[in-house]
Amino acid sequence: MKISVVKNILEANDRIAQENRAIFDESNLLVINLMSSPGAGKTSLLEKTIDALKNDFQIGVIEGDIQSSQDAERIARKEIPVVQINTGGACHLDGNMIRDTFKEFVFDDLDLLVVENVGNLVCPAEFKVGEDFKAMILSVPEGEDKPAKYPLMFHESKVLLINKIDLAPYLDCSVEDMKKEALKVNPHLTIFEVSCKTGEGLDSWYAWLKDAVNNRKSA
């Protein structure tokens, strides 16, 4: 007997993500799913962003890693609420893992929640966690061919931060080409060129993020 199904395989996760989203909505909380390959600078960007904006609003962080709590410890030094998820092998976060951290936060006290996904350029983009939008980092040493090789994440992200531009002079990689390649896969990307080491370019990211949080609050 043939059964016609026509169902999205990720439907169960999508449903949980939607439920998470409804909970975030009650607190008018802006939630960002931050993704990149390992070491592109997600935690560094968070540290900088927290330093710059923690007087303007309350930030919470969920750290996703396969193992270790080093990233959560780095964030905890900033004295903001942070929870570490260890996926124990899974290469991405999903809606359920995020849900399990809810008891650790008081969402009404927060304005911005950033979920630092597991370092991986492939599958985190496939699993929603309940975010308002996805933001990703591509660091200059990774090369300009990455958007074409890993199109899904670029296609699903709203924001691209090109990080480590301080290294560009030492590499055969042009930031302009990186931008061009990324915009091919997603012409709607908002792109920031930054260095978390020198601080270059971060001011426009902070300003953009501030607006996003304020818009969310008044929505």
Partner: peptide
């Protein structure tokens, strides 16, 4: 993976196929 219209160059396109991961049917 060039998400723009090859005819007029507009980036305002709708992806109509190739994004989903779905079950079609099963034989039981």
């Amino acid at each position: 993976y060039a998400f723009e219209c090859p005819y007029c160059g507009s980036p305002d396109i709708e992806t109509t196929a190739g994004q989903d991961l779905s079950i079609v049917d099963m034989e039981v």
